[in-house]
Write a protein that binds this DNA or RNA. Structure first.
Lengths: 249, 249
DNA sequence: ACGGCAAAAAATGAATGCAATATTGCCGTC
DNA sequence: GACGGCAATATTGCATTCATTTTTTGCCGT
């Protein structure tokens, strides 16, 4: 994977990777090649973007018309989406969109924390000087946004750092799984209209300092720990924001 | 006409394997309820148990005959198996069994290490006195097998401890994902006829002492670390055993 | 004997058809 | 007006069918 050239352009470096985290590699094989792969991606996005409400039944016929395919590839896609956790298959009663209750959301955050934790550990084993530089770059760009209170740019950099750490971990299976699970959280953001909140901003910024520091020192065990707790704290903040209880139920 | 014979007895090579740690909850919804769910489970087991060789094409027609279903549910199952990583879908060229090369196996071990690491951390947050007792029990039973050099019993207890830790973590999504990924490694065991080896036995036993100790003290961070390295060491041992290189390639 | 080409065969991918099941709308009764 | 039963309708799950594409086979020429 080409690592981005060390062109010292903090501001522009990110804008290019801006758009959408997009697809894990997991379904690159399915993606554009076949009808069902196409339908899978489109239907997944359709659900992630919240066009179907939690618990709503998935109208096969309508979606067939919408996508211009017959029921066969659509139903194949539904089976896959069920295994990914986006829908639930009820015997003889079709598919329903699977929303996340507070408990599942909490679980999902912890699992993501586990992935990031692992990624941090592995990244410390593999990271090159150039890559440390790259992360630093993004970090300082993010710091700039932080100082200027530009939430949007801050958020993009934040995402980029976490994504790069996972990529640098150099474990394709991890990467694919990470992004796949990330999609399920992404949907919550759409649904709950969960724009990033300012609470905890300075705290998160401090945590990122620690992340960068641990990366520089290649302190895998430590970074692993920091990243898990970073996600935990994010979970706490999100739950606070949503008015959920933070204790197990 | 109406076939509908829920029994689905091919009477042929499919073992009536009862045990199997079985099932993540992930497909409890798919499992016995529908034809495609049934086929999914059976085909997955069929592949895990090595009835199809790495890279072999998956013969739709034959399997349809074997399972006594039409191509539709079988193909639906194939799509899911592809998303789980057991097969690869080649456009217009059907499905091929996806074997793991050394690199992917290494990645998979690390991901499992990540899951166990996370599980240990969470388990320390949740574990009750009774559950500690239970783990201790298994641990000492395992120690007995160790002293008597009974590899089989030792191995069963070993598995049980790791499984219990994951369950005690109390994160259903983690549990489901853990077992799902475990299946892919399970296949390697079948294929490579990877009986447990004696190497590293005493070392592994010592590590398990540390695991139990950390659990007792509810030292999550520590246990997290121990478990990751435990898996790493296991990976090293397995790779040694298989004659693979242990360094990244 | 060997390699290349064309036709046949088989496989795949997707659409359609059909029986079984769920859902809806309607009506009568309380 | 609310409720329960019943027919009409829609939906689901799977089998079957159809159009392509791939693979194999058979043939010919060199």
């Amino acid at each position: 994977m080409t690592n981005i050239q060390p062109s010292l352009k903090p501001a522009s470096g990110l804008s290019e990777r801006a758009p959408s985290p997009d697809a894990a590699d997991a379904e690159s094989s399915l993606a554009g090649q076949s009808l069902h792969g196409e339908v899978l991606c489109r239907l997944r996005d359709y659900i992630i973007e919240g066009h179907l409400k939690d618990g709503a039944r998935v109208p096969e016929r309508e979606l067939c018309d919408l996508f211009g395919v017959s029921r066969t590839p659509l139903r194949e896609a539904l089976k896959v989406l069920a295994s990914e956790g986006f829908v639930e298959l009820l015997p003889n009663r079709g598919a329903r969109v699977k929303g996340l209750d507070a408990n599942e959301l909490r679980e999902l955050f912890d699992v993501m924390g586990g992935f990031e934790s692992l990624a941090g550990r592995l990244a410390c084993e593999n990271i090159s000087a150039d890559e440390i530089n790259e992360i630093e770059q993004i970090h300082y760009e993010m710091y700039g946004y932080y100082l200027r209170r530009e939430l949007d740019g801050y958020f993009r950099c934040n995402q980029a750092i976490h994504r790069r750490i996972v990529e640098i971990a150099g474990n394709k299976i991890l990467t694919a799984t990470y992004f796949s699970f990330g999609n399920r959280i992404r949907r919550v953001r759409y649904i709950a209209n969960l724009d990033q909140h300012h609470d905890r901003w300075s705290e998160a910024m401090r945590e990122h300092e620690a992340i960068l520091d641990a990366l520089r020192r290649k302190a895998g065990r430590e970074l692993s720990d920091i990243l898990f707790n970073h996600l935990r704290n994010k979970r706490y903040a999100v739950f606070e924001h949503l008015g959920f209880s933070n204790s197990a139920e």
